[in-house]
Design a protein around this nucleic acid. Structure first.
Length: 115
RNA sequence: GCAGGUAGUCGAGGCGAUCGCGGUUAAUUUUUAAUCGAGGAAAGUCCGAACUCCACAGAGCGGCGUGCCGGAUAACGUCCGGCGGAAGUAAUUCCAGAGAUAGUGUCACAGAAAACAAACCGCCAAAUUUUUUGGUAAGGAUGAAACGGCAGGGUAAGAGCCUACCAGACGUGCAGUAAUGCUCGUGCUUGAUAAACCUCACGCGGAGCAAAACUAAAUAGGAAAUGGUUGAGGUUGCUCGCUGACAUUUCGGGUAAGUUGCUUGAGUUGUGCGGUAACGUACAAUCCAGAUAAAUGAUCGCCAUUAUUACAAAAUUCGGCUUAUUGACUGCCUGCCUCC
RNA sequence: GCUUGCUUAGCCCAGUUGGUAGAGCAUUUCCGUCACAUGGAAGGGGUCGAGGGUUCGAGUCCCCCAGCAAGCA
C-alpha cells in the first residue's frame, strides 16, 4: 500500500520542464516543491538534487530521502496534481523524520493535504 | 623495546523485524514466489587496446608522441630485472636518464671579458718618464656559470711548459646479450640550455556507444539565396588517390519514442609446473549489476566501537597511470638500546 | 558518457620567442571650490587558481590537481 512504482514517477526532460516552469512553488529550509494540475501528469512525482549539494553519493542520498518522505505520505495528498521535490543543503545531514515533517508542513501550506 | 623502510590484506559495520526499489527466471496473470544487485579507487579522462562508422584504411609532406640497456604484454607513456646518477648511517627511495664535435638561437643585471676568446686592476721586462710597448692567466673583483682541480718543479713573471694524484675526453684490451664496468696508453682538456628550434631511432589514418544499426510515428519529404558533373560535399592540416550529387545560410514546420549495441570476458578463483621477476602455461571449479529522472534506502531493537561512520556510486568493455581516503592487521628487512 | 576552452590588483582585462608584472574603473591623500561633482597631481594594493619538475632564473615551458564555462544524439 506504500508502493511507488515506475509509472508514478515523472519521466523525461519534457515532463519535468512543464511542471518546473508552469507550476506553483513553495519552499522551506529543507526542500522546494513545484505543484501543477495537468491531466496527463496527475498523481506523478519527481525528485531532484542540484549539483551544488555535492558529489553523486550525496545527491543520491538526498533523492532517496525525498522519495521516502513522499512514499509514506502519498495517500494524504490530493491526486489532482503533479509534484517535483528539490532538496536543499539542510537535507544533506538530516534524518528521514526531519524530511517527513518538513514535507507534511509544506503540503499543508500548499493546500494539497488531506487528513 | 623504540625509530624507520617495504610488500600486501580487510575496507566500516553485524544480526533480526516492518515498509520499499532494479534485473532475471518461473507460475499465472497483473500480482505473487525464488534468486542476484556498486568500488579500490566505480572518480579524473592522462595513456594504451577491443568494438563501431568513415575506401574493410591507401601514398607523400607536415604534425604529434616516446627516448640508458634487456625482457614481459593484445598494446602502452605501464610493469619486471639490470646499469648510471642523486638522497639517506642503513634497509630503501627518486630520476622526460639519446645527441651540445651536423647546424641555428639564447645566456638579463653585474663584470675587463659570457664563447674562433679577450686584457680592467695586478705581476714581470724594456723604454721613456708618469705614460707607452711587449709578455702573462698564478692573484683580485662580478656572476647561476670565467676555458680542468690541487701540490711540487720550473720561470724575468707565468703558463699541462714538466711531474704525481684526482675529474673528464679519445683509443687499445678484457668481462657482459647490452647499457656499462675494469686495466693500460695519449697532456688531448673544446661552457650551460634540446620540458629552445633541431638531429637520430621507433611508433601513430580520423572520429567516438550522444559511435553505429533497425522499427514505428509525425509533416508542407517546404521555400528563398549562393556554389555545383568544367566535380559540390566527404575522406585529417595540405597535395595526390578514392568516392560521385548535393552542400551552406536564412525563414517556416515536425520528431526527439522504442529495440539492438549491453555484458561470457586478453573473465574470476584455486592448485601444479617454467621463469630471479613482470608474466606464461596445464587442469579443475564458477557466472559475479546492467539501469535510462537512472535501482542498494528508511524506521525500530540488540551487539561491537571514541564515533549513526573515511574517500566515495557502475553507464560499451578491458589493461595501466594519477588523484582522494579512515581505522586496523600481517609478513619481511634496516639502525639503535637492553637481556639471555 | 565523450570533447574543448578559461583562471593575473576590489572589478573588467593586457602581458609575442623565459630576465624587476602593467593599463582602465574603483580606493587613499593633496590641489582647486563657500561646499559637492567634473578636473589636475601623487601614492597604496598581486603567494599571477593549488602543488611538483626543467632551468642560474618560470605569469610564460612540462606534468598533475581544483574551480568555472561551452559543445556533441
Amino acid at each position: 500500500m506504500f508502493e511507488l512504482g515506475r509509472n508514478k514517477i515523472l519521466r523525461g526532460k519534457r515532463e519535468f520542464n512543464t511542471v518546473h516552469s508552469k507550476g506553483r512553488s513553495f519552499a522551506n529550509r529543507e526542500m522546494v516543491i513545484y505543484i501543477l494540475n495537468d491531466e496527463n501528469l496527475n498523481g506523478k512525482a519527481g525528485f531532484a538534487a542540484g549539483k551544488k549539494l555535492g558529489c553523486a553519493v550525496i545527491r543520491n542520498r538526498v533523492k532517496r530521502i525525498l522519495r521516502e518522505a513522499y512514499r509514506l505520505n502519498q495517500h494524504n495528498i490530493k491526486q489532482d496534481c503533479a509534484i517535483i521535490l528539490v532538496g536543499r543543503k539542510n537535507l544533506i545531514e538530516a534524518k528521514a523524520d526531519v524530511a517527513i515533517k518538513s514535507f507534511q508542513e509544506i503540503c499543508k501550506r500548499a493546500k494539497i493535504w488531506i487528513d
